[in-house]
């Protein structure tokens, strides 16, 4: 897979910038993960970030010097799988422990269960 020629270099530059854009768009989701009023909001944010990390791994594999895309595609596949299992497990676990809806409400008092 030779990256030779002008258009290959242009494609590489495009992938770099698209990857940076994807990374920057993950920052607001991090913000939601920090402030998320309930625990499950945070789990959702982690789930979104995890999916996008799998996509980002494909980006990294494509612009990786030496063309090791086949390795990074395996990473992305495994990461997506683990992300799915992880969010299922988190939902199940927090559901079991009844701590999912806990939040500080608008008046600033912690609600009791």
């Amino acid at each position: 897979m030779g990256h030779s020629g002008k258009e290959a270099a242009e494609m590489n530059a495009f992938f770099v910038w698209a990857g940076i854009a994807l990374l920057l768009m993950m920052v607001p989701v991090f913000y939601r993960m920090n402030i998320g009023p309930t625990a499950i909001d945070r789990i959702v944010a982690v789930n979104v970030i995890g999916t996008k990390t799998a996509v980002l791994l494909v980006f990294i594999g494509t612009i990786f010097p030496g063309g090791r895309i086949e390795m990074f595609v395996d990473f992305a596949l495994a990461y997506g799988l683990l992300n799915f299992i992880g969010s299922l497990a988190a939902a199940r676990f927090f559901h079991r422990s009844k701590a999912l809806g806990g939040e500080i409400d608008v008046e600033g008092e912690a609600e009791e269960f």
Binding site: T38, I40, I43, V44, N47, T51, A54, V58, E70, V73, D74, A76, L77, G80, L81, F84, S87, L88, A91, R92, F94, H95, K98, L100, G101
Partner: peptide, 28 residues
């Protein structure tokens, strides 16, 4: 493999959404 990731995401992402929705709803 990339197409397999596509199929996988298309199957699992709504399922994860549904599981989280269900957990939140059950928790009131």
């Amino acid at each position: 493999k990339l197409l397999a990731i596509c199929a996988f995401i298309m199957l699992t992402s709504p399922t994860a959404t549904h599981a989280l929705m269900d957990a939140g709803y059950e928790d009131g």
